[in-house]
Design a protein around this nucleic acid. Structure first.
Lengths: 339, 339
DNA sequence: ACCGATTGTCGAACCGGTTCGCGTGAAGTG
DNA sequence: CACTTCACGCGAACCGGTTCGACAATCGGT
C-alpha cells in the first residue's frame, strides 16, 4: 500500500501519482480521476515519515510543557487543549515534550532529531536557556509568556504586571488597606518564572502607589499549602482584609483557611487574583478575578507559529493580553478592621 | 550534518557509522571512538524521519483524547501528564490527537499516515467504533477504560461499578436512606460513555440492594450546571440527605447549591463520589471519595502498550483498579430527616 | 607454510515519498 | 505540410537513515 502500488494499479508512474495528489503540476482530468479512484478503493494515505524525509517538513509542532513533579494547573490543560485543536485545524499534529532544561533528552529529541517543524514553549522564565538556545539556532518557536528581553522574540502572553496591579486597585478602591499577595512556590520564583515575577512586581508597585500595607508570600501548588499559607497570613497580620493570588491550585486551601479562621468571604475578607475562569467559577463564593484566557493564548500561539513557519523571515510578532477583572462574588467593601 | 558527513569526517563508510551508533554489529574500539568523537563535536543526531522510514518504527505513540467542546477535567490532565512522562522514560514521544469518531481526519492521520507505532485511547464508550476499528486493523492500542466486550482487548481501567457501589454502601452505613446520583452530562450518557454507564449501574444496583430511595441525574460539566442540578435534587425530594457524583467539574457548583439551600456539609448533607484526589482536596470541606489514580492509569497504559509493541503476539492484558474511598470531611451520619 | 575461521569494514539496495529535466504526441500556425 | 508550442507523463535522482552480503586482513591450529 505505497505509492508504487497505486501507480501500478492506475497504470501510471509514481511521479504522476504524486503530482496528481499534491496538485503541484497539472495532470489530465482523466488520469487524475483514475488515480483518485484507486486511492479511494485502497484507502491509501502517504507515509508521514517518507514525506517528511523527502520534503523536510514534518507537519508537526512540538509543545514543550513543564517538567514532571509540577502539579499541573487547570490553565495548562486549557493551553494544551486549545493548542492541539488549533493545530489540527491547520493540519498540524502536536508532539508533547516534557522538558525543563536546554540539555534535556526530550528537548534534544525534538530539535536534534528534527521531529517537529517548530515549537511552542510554556512556563517561560525571565532568563530562559531554552529560549536562548532556540533563538541561537534560529529555530521557529513561539513562547507562551515572555522573557526579560522579549523584543526579538515571537510570543503570546499575559500582562501579569498590569493584572496584579489591577487587582490591587480593585481592592484599594473597595477600601482595603492591608493585603497579602499569594504567589506560586518559592522554588518557581527563584527559578525566575515570569508570571510569578511580573505579578509580584505589579502587586508591589501598585500597593506602594496606593500607600497600602502589604506582605507577600510564596505558596505551594496545592490545597494544603494554601491553607497553611492563609494561617500564616493571619498570624503575621490579623488585620489583613484581602489577598491577591496567582496560585490557582492553592485557592481551595486559601478559602478553607479563611473559613476555619471564621472569616466570611466577601464580608470579612476579599479574595481576588489571576485565575482561569473555569476555576474561578468552581470555588464558593465564585472568585472575582482576571480570567486567564488560556484557550485564546493557545490558539494565538499556534497562529503565530504557523505564520512564522510559512514566512521564515517575517519580523517577530506578539500578542500581549490584559483581560479585565470579572466581578463575581469574592470581593467586597472593607469593613472597619476592628469592628 | 547527516550520517554521510559523519562518515566522511571519521574516514569510514556510512554503514560503519550506523553500526557504531546502534551497536547492531561489532565495530572495533578504535573506529568506534573516532566516530563518537566526530559525533560529539558536531552534535550529530540521526533524523527521526529517515530512521522511521528505514526501520518502520516511529518511536512515537498516539494519545487520542476527547473531542473539542468537551470541558476538560483535572483527571484528563493527569492522564496526559503521566502518559507523556512514562513514554519519555521509555524513549517514546507522544503525539496528541483530538478525535471523536472513526472517520475523523486526525484519526486518519495517525493511522493512515503511520505517524505512530501504537495508540492510547481515552474516554471509551461501551460501543466504541474507534476501538472496533483498531481491533479490526490489529493496530497496537491500549484503552483507558473498557468497552462492553473487553475480553480480547488491552486496557487499563477503573471498576466504576464497584466504586459507585462502594459510595452507596458508605453512605448507607452512615444511615442515609434517600440519596441522589449526579452523573456526567446526558449527552455523554447517551453516547455510551463507560464510566457514566457503569457508575450509574453500580449506584442503582447497590441502592436497590440496600433498599434505598434514590434519584439519578445528569449534569453538565461545569459549576453552573452543578448548582442547578442540586437545586433540582432538593426540589424533587427535599428529604434527600446525600449524593454520589462522578462529575468532577460540577462539584463546586453542587457545593454552592448546598450552601445556598442552607445545608451544611457534612452535618445536614453528605457528598461523595469518584474524583481525582487533587480535586477532592480542593473543595471545602474536602471530599470523601474514591480517588481516581489517574497518574497510575496513565503509566500502566504506557507500559502495556510498549509491551504489546515489543511482543506483537502476546496475549491481551489489562489492569482493573478499584481504589478505596479516602475518608475526608464531606460525609457524616444521617440526622433525623425532619428534625 | 597452508588453510579455515573470525573480525572489521565496505558497497549497494532499500524504505516511500518528492522533484527536476526531458521526451512524446497532439494541437495550433503560417 | 513542416514547424513551433504546449500539455502530459515518465525515469532518475534524492532525502537520510538501516541492513544484508561480500570481502580483506588477521589469527590460531596442525
Amino acid at each position: 500500500m505505497n505509492i508504487g502500488e497505486i501507480a501500478r494499479r492506475a497504470g501510471v508512474s509514481r511521479s504522476t501519482v504524486s503530482y496528481a495528489l499534491s496538485g503541484k503540476r497539472p495532470v489530465s482530468e482523466d488520469t487524475r480521476r483514475k488515480i483518485q479512484q484507486v486511492v479511494d478503493e485502497l484507502g491509501y494515505r502517504p507515509s508521514a515519515s517518507a514525506r517528511a524525509l523527502a520534503n523536510g517538513r514534518t507537519s508537526t509542532i512540538g509543545l514543550v510543557f513543564p517538567p514532571a513533579g509540577n502539579h499541573y494547573t487547570g490553565m495548562q490543560l486549557d493551553f494544551i487543549g486549545s493548542v492541539v485543536e488549533a493545530a489540527a485545524a491547520r493540519d498540524y499534529d502536536v508532539l508533547l515534550s516534557p522538558s525543563g532544561v536546554d540539555s534535556d533528552r526530550s528537548f534534544q529529541r525534538l530539535l536534534g532529531e528534527r521531529r517537529v517543524d517548530g515549537a511552542i514553549l510554556m512556563e517561560i522564565r525571565l532568563q530562559d536557556d531554552r529560549v536562548d538556545h532556540l533563538a541561537a539556532l534560529d529555530f521557529p518557536s513561539v513562547t507562551i509568556g515572555r522573557t526579560a528581553r522579549p523584543e526579538r522574540g515571537w510570543w503570546v502572553g499575559l500582562d501579569h504586571t498590569a493584572l496584579a496591579a489591577a487587582c490591587v486597585h480593585h481592592l484599594a478602591d473597595l477600601g482595603h488597606r492591608r493585603m497579602a499577595f499569594v504567589n506560586r512556590p518559592e522554588q518557581l520564583l527563584r527559578a525566575g518564572y515570569e508570571s510569578a515575577h511580573r505579578g509580584l512586581d505589579g502587586f508591589t508597585k501598585a500597593a506602594a502607589e496606593r500607600g497600602l500595607t502589604v506582605r507577600t508570600y510564596c505558596c505551594g501548588d496545592d490545597a494544603a499549602s494554601g491553607q497553611a499559607c492563609l494561617e500564616r497570613i493571619l498570624y503575621d497580620d490579623p488585620d489583613t482584609t484581602a489577598l491577591v493570588t496567582l496560585n490557582e491550585a492553592a485557592l481551595g486551601g486559601l478559602y478553607r483557611g479563611l473559613a476555619q479562621a471564621g472569616r466570611h468571604v466577601p464580608r470579612d475578607f476579599s479574595v481576588t487574583g489571576v485565575v482561569a475562569a473555569r476555576w474561578a467559577e468552581t470555588v464558593n463564593p465564585q472568585l472575582s478575578a482576571a480570567d486567564v484566557p488560556a484557550a485564546e493564548l493557545g490558539r494565538r500561539a499556534v497562529d503565530l507559529l504557523i505564520e512564522r513557519l510559512d514566512r521564515p523571515d517575517a519580523p517577530p510578532r506578539h500578542h500581549l493580553l490584559t483581560p479585565p477583572i470579572s466581578l463575581r462574588a469574592s470581593t467586597g467593601p472593607a469593613g472597619t478592621p476592628d469592628a
